[in-house]
Design a binder for these strands. Structure first.
Ligand code: DCP
Length: 1041
DNA sequence: CGATAAACCTAT
DNA sequence: TGAGATAGGTTTATCG
């Protein structure tokens, strides 16, 4: 076991007489001239051939690179005139003609043969069920290189080229859109993160002078020799010890500027190396200039930046990590380091991948999906190492209102983190060894946090499991979407049954009303109201997957309308959309089988949740369970994805149609069965339902009885439907506030003796685009009404909150609204506050401005009555720094009033009078805050400077200017004096308290607080009291007492 | 001014 | 050549 920073080179160097077994972490494409192949392979070819580099780790933590030879990509095709191609002679001619055609479609390639083989094989199309054992042969076209696949597709589309063979009809393509890496993995039965064995004597170890990589074990092997193990069974269900390299850099920018790699130096890099899941850890901090000692970390002080970069790069190579992690490392750190090294001419720097003589790269990628939106990111490509950007993982798995390291640390680790403002970084760097030591401590912390997040979120375990269940390599999980996972599973299942996936022609999707291709689920009308009796919730378990399994919905089971006559009625299922599928007894579909796998994995994850009491752990396992559920639902979604690889709306539309029928039947059953006429004390009512759930008012007053009836009804309804469809009694809401479709809140009970929690759906409290003030206030109301059952208390609470707001006592951090920037600023059709601000910020400071996919935080400032809201959005940090005036009344009118009115509509008569009139709505924000935006922004800069009375803030006449008080206030100067002193005193105390709290956070009272954590309420409070104090003192000083 | 479209985010 | 799906509520800008 490797127990040092450097990955030890011990007895692990491969002895060809022993087998090598390792866990695969990455599969990468490369190529080499065929004549240099060190191992014998089945197919003899010339020119450049592809070589797969399979990287991984042994159980002893030795790094491995297997150069896998002899695997060539292929696609399939067929033609209605297949009979023309019977016989070896015709095939040989076809092969030759195709080779020429492919050559004509290929650029920059050697002249060696491209079409290596065309072989007719008995296969079938996954589309449609067919009884026939054999319909027509399919031709497997093996090509030399991955780039020839595209060329071959183009060649096959040119019908005229094949006229000479008597082929005039267009070819139909199959599996012509499969990535080479995935093709290989599917064909050899290798799933992501699986264990592999190169058996003894099957491989050729690389002698040191022939090594291409820096892995400890490096060998060549024929692809047919490398054995892939099933991850289902021990010992191949485990995870190898992975070496994880986490780092963070600090740069020194010009005053007030964001660092720019062409001019601004990298001054520190902190690294934490860990071996997962073993707790071995090493820490190093590379500093520019000498630096005091750090506990638990080695300081490597460099005199020169070039030396620092070189040292970091070579240390990374020595550490030989499998995983490189960090927070936002792809967008910032890695890219910056590489650009910086280039600017400094440190040519050896980018060679920190595992492949010698290959540079790491950083390139821009955009990912776009409906659920995730559009995200533009840099992606670091480092051969043999997987880059896991913890920020990106959290962005895909969690919906948060901010994704800064500060915010997520607090959220997931429960600890505040300091953020050193860039101007401070330069100061600390330019100071002495002590200030640099301080900086190094921050830098190190930022390198350690990603490791802690990774552990807490169990990223490695969760990703490994997902890679194994869905079959895709780790990198696909990090950079691609749901569809490739479904595609991978489909390819595997189809392959096992001799079926081929047609390559879908990309034409315009048939889009119906509102840009939707087919009808989705039913949402029952909500009987809005406040229910004081228990409402039982019945919910189908994994509804769409269970429908697809129950009715055997699949490409392979679909029967086209004109072939129904070939089947007995009992062999078919007619779906509500009029589509027809064969029953599982005739043929079991691929999709149901895929869903079986995913759902059993989900079941295992759910079972694990019950084994722990730690809420954080439960949360993580819950996330894993949800990810598997999402994958299962995405199997359904894949069939409905009209811009995807294999849409089949008969499947997706039938699934939703069954779902609609089921929710209707469930509703009718409950209404019909649970009646006074049938001996129950009350007539039941279905007050709401969405897609797969019904909310039932059985009429009983106690929770236990509602649970009993709910469970009973669930079982009865389950019996109405084919297995594995199952209606579950899940929970009771009591009381229940139903506001409308997709909007409700209720106290949730899963057991009769105590409630679980307040559950809120769709209401403002769960929406990230509401400010915390609105969310917290509404949540406070819901808690008082539904949990404490104290309506009058809730009214008082609201009034108090409104008063706080209007008197300027609400912290700015509670008034920050965030909205996602969903596209480029120029692409918006209408103006919107967050978009205008994003544009403004770009003009101010392009490097720190929000990018597509980022969330834009803003507050609304006071402005002229004629101003549009979108003109009044401003960056919260700027607002605090400059003391810009917030439009508190805007928050009342636009973020609180309507939501609260809707909530109270079911609870209180005359909401307007009860909540929004009275003295608390008068407000009396301090004058300082009532300056208009124009004033603050300097539009009235040329106006004569007026001076206000320190007592009442009225404008002072020239005569009173020097005194600082108007005639009226001068009368009571003495009490004003006391008042002012008290105000200054209170502010000083508050400022001291905030500073002290920040010092506690930074774990040092000896130093000035330098944190600028925008996601920390304390930061805003501290700056605000600081400003208030300064102004109060200035006002005081302006008076001739 | 009222209707409608655009934008966002959520429920399932 | 990549991208699971649809339903629906609310706020704000814009159109007529
Ligand atoms: N991201 C999602 C969530 C749901 N659905 C569809 C398919 C689901 O079967 C159905 C019901 O959704 P639920 O959220 O109730 O989840 P499930 O029924 O799938 O799972 P369970 O109720 O077992 O948690 O809605 C979907 O297509 N995509």
């Amino acid at each position: 076991m490797s127990r040092s920073w450097k990955r030890s080179i011990g007895d692990d160097t491969a002895d060809p007489r022993c087998a090598v077994t390792f866990m695969q972490t990455s599969v990468e494409e490369s190529d080499a001239p065929a004549h240099t192949r060190p191992v014998r392979v089945a197919m003899t070819v010339g020119g450049v051939v592809p070589v797969l580099r399979v990287f991984g780790v042994t159980q002893n933590s030795a790094s491995v690179c297997a150069h896998v030879h002899g695997f060539h990509p292929h696609l399939w095709c067929t033609t209605p005139q297949w009979q023309t191609l019977s016989g070896p002679e015709a095939m040989a001619r076809f092969c030759d003609v195709l080779d020429v055609a492919v050559a004509d479609e290929t650029r920059n390639d050697d002249s060696a043969r491209r079409v290596l083989e065309v072989k007719a094989m008995p296969r079938r199309d996954v589309m449609y069920h067919s009884r026939a054992e054999f319909t027509q042969p399919y031709f497997r076209v093996t090509l030399r290189r991955p780039c020839h696949i595209t060329a071959c597709r183009k060649a096959l589309s040119r019908c005229e080229r094949f006229k000479c063979l008597g082929l005039t009809a267009p070819f139909e393509l199959y599996e012509a859109d499969v990535d080479y890496t995935l093709r290989y993995m599917v064909d050899v039965g290798m799933v992501g993160c699986s264990w592999l064995t190169a058996p003894a004597e099957s491989y050729a170890p690389r002698r040191s002078e022939k090594r291409d990589t820096r892995c400890q074990i490096e060998f060549d092997i024929d692809y047919a020799q490398l054995v892939a193990h099933d991850p289902e069974f021990a010992p191949y269900d485990g995870v190898a010890p992975l070496r994880v390299f986490s780092f963070d850099i600090e740069c020194c920018a010009e005053e007030g500027h964001f660092p720019c790699p062409s001019s601004d130096p990298v001054i520190q890099i902190a690294v934490e190396m860990v071996v997962e899941p073993i707790a071995a850890e090493w820490r190093r901090v590379y500093t520019l200039g000498d630096c005091g000692r750090l506990a638990g970390a080695e300081v490597i002080a460099c005199d020169d930046e070039r030396q620092l970069l070189r040292r970091w790069s070579s240390d990374l190579v020595a550490a030989d990590p499998d995983l490189i992690i960090g927070y936002n490392v792809q967008n910032f750190d890695i890219d910056y380091l590489m650009r910086r090294a280039e600017a400094l001419g440190v040519i050896e720097f980018p060679y920190f991948g595992r492949v010698r003589r290959k540079k790491a790269e950083s390139k821009e990628m955009t990912f776009s999906s409906k659920a995730q939106g559009t995200r533009k990111n840099m992606r670091a490509v480092i051969d043999g190492r997987v880059v896991l950007d913890v920020m990106q993982s959290i962005q895909t798995d969690h919906k948060l209102s901010s994704y800064t390291l500060n915010y997520v640390s607090e959220r997931f680790l429960g600890e505040r983190k300091e953020d050193v403002h860039h101007s401070m970084i330069a100061k600390l760097h330019r100071g002495d060894r002590n200030t640099r030591q301080r900086l190094a401590a921050y830098c190190l912390k930022d390198a350690q946090l990603p490791v802690r997040l990774m552990r807490k979120l169990m990223l490695i375990y969760n990703l490994t499991e997902m890679a194994r269940v869905t079959g895709v390599p780790l990198s696909y999980l990090l950079h691609r979407g749901q569809s490739v996972k479904v595609f991978s599973q489909l390819l595997r299942r189809a392959g096992r049954e001799g079926l081929l996936l047609p390559t879908h022609a990309r034409d315009e999707a048939v889009v119906g009303d509102g840009g939707v291709a087919y009808e989705g689920a039913t949402v029952l009308d909500a009987k809005a109201g406040y229910y004081e009796v228990p409402i039982a919730t019945l919910d189908f378990a994994s509804l769409y997957p269970s429908i697809m399994r129950a009715h055997n919905l699949c490409y392979t089971t679909l029967v086209p309308a004109d072939r129904r006559a070939e089947y007995a009625e009992t062999e078919l299922t007619l779906t509500p959309t009029g589509d027809c599928f064969v029953k599982p007894e005739v043929r079991r579909g691929l999709l149901p089988a895929i869903l079986d796998d995913l759902l059993s994995a989900r079941k295992r994850a759910r079972a694990l949740i019950k084994t722990t009491d730690d809420p954080m752990m439960r949360g993580v396992l819950e996330g894993r369970q949800l990810a598997l559920k999402l994958s299962a639902n995405s199997v359904y979604g894949f069939t409905g994805a009209t811009v995807g690889k294999l849409p089949c709306l008969a499947i997706s539309a039938s699934t939703t149609a069954f779902g609609r029928r089921m929710i209707d039947e469930t509703r009718s059953f409950v209404l019909r069965e649970y009646t006074v006429a049938n001996g129950y004390p009350h007539d039941a009512d279905v007050v709401y339902g969405d897609t797969d759930s019904v909310m039932v008012r059985f009429g009983c007053a106690d929770v236990a009885e509602a649970m009993r009836l709910g469970a009973l009804a669930a079982d009865q309804v389950t019996a109405l439907f084919p297995a594995p469809v199952q209606l579950e009694f899940e929970k009771v809401y009591h009381p229940y506030l139903l506001m409308g479709k997709k909007r409700y809140a209720g106290l949730l009970w899963t057991r009769a003796d105590r409630h679980d929690k307040l559950d809120t759906k769709g209401i403002e409290t769960v929406r990230r685009d509401n400010c915390a003030f609105a969310r917290n206030t509404i949540a406070g109301v819901l808690r008082r009404v539904l949990v404490l059952r104290d309506v009058p208390g809730s009214v008082e609470y609201v009034k108090g909150r409104i008063e706080e707001l209007l008197t300027g006592r609400v912290d700015i951090s509670e008034l920050v609204i965030t909205k996602g920037l969903t596209r480029e600023v120029s692409e918006y059709a209408t103006r919107a506050a967050h978009v205008e601000l994003a544009a403004k910020r770009r003009r101010r400071h392009a490097a720190t401005a929000p990018r597509v996919g980022d969330r834009v935080p803003y507050v609304i400032l006071r402005g002229h009555k004629t101003s549009k809201t979108y003109e009044l959005a401003e960056d919260p940090v700027r607002v605090v720094e400059r003391g810009l005036p917030i439009d508190h009344r805007h928050y009342l009118e636009h973020h609180l009033k309507l939501p609260l009115t809707r909530i109270y509509a079911a609870i209180l008569p005359n909401v307007e009078r009860a909540l929004f009139s009275g003295p608390h709505t008068m407000g009396s924000a301090p004058q300082r805050l009532t300056r208009s935006v124009e004033h603050a922004a300097g539009i009235s800069r040329f106006a004569r400077v007026v001076k206000a009375c320190a007592g009442c803030r009225t404008t002072l006449s020239d005569a009173d200017r020097d005194a600082g008080l108007c005639a009226h206030c001068r009368v009571d100067a003495q009490s004003l004096y006391v008042q002012s002193m008290l105000e200054i005193d209170a502010l000083a105390v508050a400022h001291h308290a905030h500073t002290a709290e920040c010092q506690r956070c930074q774990r040092s009272v000896l130093h000035e607080v330098i944190c600028a954590n925008r996601d920390c309420a304390l930061f805003y409070r501290r700056i605000k009291t600081q400003n208030d104090l300064r102004e109060a003192r200035a006002r005081f000083a302006a008076v001739e007492w």
